[in-house]
Amino acid sequence: MLSILFYLFATVAIFSAFYVTKARNPVNSALCLVTTFICFAVLYITLDAPFMAAIQIIVYAGAIIVLIIFVIMLLNLGTAVKKRYTHALAWGAALSVIMLFITNTFIRRGVPTGKLGDVTTQMIHSYGHTELIGMALFTEFLLPFEIASILLLVAIVGAIILSKRQV
């Protein structure tokens, strides 16, 4: 049952990701991207990571897509911005096929012998996923968290400097 669900959503994710690049109207591209993100969120839920799924929906499918659509609207792009076919697409397709092939051989040759981490499915069910992430984020990964906040500060300063007319 779960594997049927996985294949279903994985197929939808791949096809909508393909249509992101294929769609001629940028708004359609953005909507296909939303579909891809939602499929990913479902996959996260099947992996016992509901918090990641919620973040995926709120941040990616919500905030970032709204931003993308705003930009598309502000730039006022018409529908026919893309040509039907370019040679770049062919190169990209060839490269993707090669990559798919390489990935396939890698996966077939690899033997997953890696050690399991501390967090098991039972632990997630007894503690809760969000609690585990919170614990890790504010104890073990506190310093990376703070450095990431510096990154965000820099990004805010940059956005203000680059967009404001007179500082």
Partner: peptide, 25 residues
């Protein structure tokens, strides 16, 4: 390899390791 820390992060990626293709990728 299951680790971010430097010497351990590359452990088990050598010839005999089962996860070698993943590490090389």
């Amino acid at each position: 390899s299951g680790s971010f820390h430097l010497p351990e992060a590359f452990a088990g990626l050598e010839q005999a390791g089962g996860m070698r293709p993943l590490g090389l990728a």
